[in-house]
Design a protein around this nucleic acid. Structure first.
Lengths: 225, 225, 225, 225
DNA sequence: TATGAATGAGCTTTCATTCAT
DNA sequence: AATGAATGAAAGCTCATTCAT
């Protein structure tokens, strides 16, 4: 399966700039997710596109810029999803459980995003640092969590003191790990964490993990439980 | 930063095969961890070695085989650490907390391993599949967890029913995520999860998270807790 | 004799794909003929070309594909020459002699082709097997020979029964051997089979060899000759 | 199937120099025959040997010297076979036919020799030129042919004047071509010249070809034959 | 007589990128 | 707005050979 575009490649010419750009971006997301930045090939991305390799340079400037565009796209999708979260009408326990479940669902439905984030971390997020757009990421999920915590402490249902960012981290860790480490975990423990039959089991689990933590005692001295 | 081992580089000739092999392996672990499989360069690995690039092919056969050797090495180190765990004398709650803390410590002290695992998952653990040695990985940590759980249910301190593998997953998720996602998490939330000043905080957190979960009720209907 | 197309080599840039391709092919024919498949060097071929090594990969994909292109080219040239043979107006004896001479001439004027065929046979024609184009080679020479034989048997001038393919083989063997084994034969017998002064001698010889065979008796019992 | 001998290759040590030498030579004959000089690999030859690559250098000095030893060996075997020819008691026609058949048989039973000769010719017999031993090759077959011709002309059975070397060439061409070009000929004409079922057919054919030539008229004007 | 370890040089191939219209 | 042709630089890998005992 040689990818190097020799002479004579005849792509379907088109005249819709925005569509061409989006086409490239969609393919790039998948390729960068599947192979990482250095593993992805400009030739391969081009081959899976309606246009040619030349257009990638025309629209994005180069591999790195295309990757950053992918990154920005991926994060903006995630942020938009978080903005749609609305749990203010639920009681704190139900709300925090709902937040955990939405986080769970979002991870589950964005496997490419997970891989891209994993790749970014391998190279120390150096590309995120290069992106102006990504520098000003706000994170709705944490504010949502903060509001729920406030209500929970006020009503007394939450007894363990925890920072909203830490709470978000605990939830994310669980949801992310299940997606990110599916293959090594599966290879070692013979258990596919993404088995659809186990989905609800894990979805409930993160809710219980987090609510049992919050409603339990804080501090070192466990009570009579 | 010269990379090509061209003429002029004078490697110290040696006659210690095992040392030469280990030298290459040690450097390779760091390079593959830092840049992933496709990002790592055989030239670069060789340059950081006492020997030459040629020796990598002499001892390992190629980039891929070297990578697999790195993988096998990394996993065998992890497995050996798990084998040394001994928490049988502690009461179940203390034991499970201790297990979580050891897992935490092991993750913290093996950042290269984390990155290699992350990279492996990006390419769907295809290299692990190619390794005969890795196919027969046993995982002491889970048996340890299983024994603790058994004792905990027997004595009644653990009330929530959970599978040992799932327990291990919850703990691992937390410990792994903190290491693996340090950079993106830090960029977005402005919080360095590896800040030494926060280390004990997080170390205690995973213990509490897991013990509050186990000692809480199981099932959907929360009792009087 | 510089081989590596290193920096400093300034190739004449051109925009004529077909010419570039042909240029590479022409050089490759000579190199593969002179050194065989494994003895030929992509660097050396490139150096003798108007373009660079990179273009060989751009146009042909690799050393092996280039070699197969050379093979296809060489055989198509030979086939085209055979197609131009027209001896239908000559009497059978003159016609078969003429066919032998044309075969002789064609071998003489295509020394590269002879070497390439010799090389192919050393590796059991495995590259020919890989070529789709070569799989469907038709061979006009044999049909021509068959028609001559038919006429010769009909008129009674040919008395020895022989298969057209075998006839072609006898002629080819002589013409090919003279070209292919020039060097070892010369070294051992001190006679250069390609000495221009002997050319007509050998050219006549194959004609006589073949006509004396055909006009002689067939079978084991020699007549009055 | 990697051949590069990495560390740890443990060959069976032996103490029989002559046998070791012969072992290497035998393997080398096959490898050089199968792949030509540049296609053969010292590593591969060593791997198929009872000893190690190092011994090739120890006994022969290098790839080239090994190849020349192979060449000398191959030619000395051929020469020895020719020396055993004895056809003096047969009448000239039977004798020349017998000589042709022995030549045929010798080619048939030495396929490796054929390939080595073919390879030598591709590189213009430059290695033969380097060998002192091969410079002084005498060729019994031609003297045998010369003696037969003499008797044939004396008795009048041979009417066509031909030089002994040319006669040998005609016979060799047929016998050699059948072996050397088996694969390309087979690919193009769909006929395996080495098919055992056709062996006697071809063996008789060269005898008839050559006797019909010798017993026919010489010169340009064919008589009543 | 024998050998395990090591290696310089060069080979084929790949990659992101730019030229020139 | 779009593109076919071309490419420098470097990557992974292989080869015959020598080192050092």
């Amino acid at each position: 399966m040689t990818t190097m575009s020799g002479p004579g490649t005849v792509p379907a010419r088109q005249r819709d700039p925005e569509r061409t750009r989006q086409d490239i971006l969609d393919v790039a997301v998948k390729e960068f997710a599947a192979r990482g930045y250095s593993g992805a090939r400009v030739d391969e991305i081009a081959a899976k596109t309606r246009t040619t390799k030349r257009m990638i340079y025309y629209y994005f400037g180069g591999k790195e810029q295309l990757y950053i565009a992918v990154l920005e796209h991926a994060y903006s999708v995630a942020r938009d999803a978080e903005r749609r979260i609305d749990v203010d009408l639920l009681d704190p326990v139900a709300a925090i459980r709902r937040l955990a479940e939405l986080t769970f669902d979002h991870h589950e439905s964005h496997p490419d995003f997970i891989k891209i984030v994993a790749g970014e971390n391998i190279n120390n997020a150096e590309f995120i640092a290069k992106s102006k757009a990504l520098a000003e990421l706000n994170t709705p999920a944490v504010s949502v969590a903060a509001r729920i915590l406030e209500r929970g402490y006020a009503s007394g249902v939450f007894r363990r003191r925890v920072d909203a960012v830490d709470l978000h981290m605990m939830v994310s860790a669980f949801c992310y790990f299940r997606m990110s480490n599916r293959h090594t975990f599966g290879a070692i423990f013979g258990r596919d964490m993404l088995d659809p039959g186990r989905r609800d089991h894990y979805r409930a689990m993160i809710g219980e993990l987090i609510t049992s933590y919050l409603t339990g005692d804080s501090g070192a001295a466990p009570a009579f439980s």
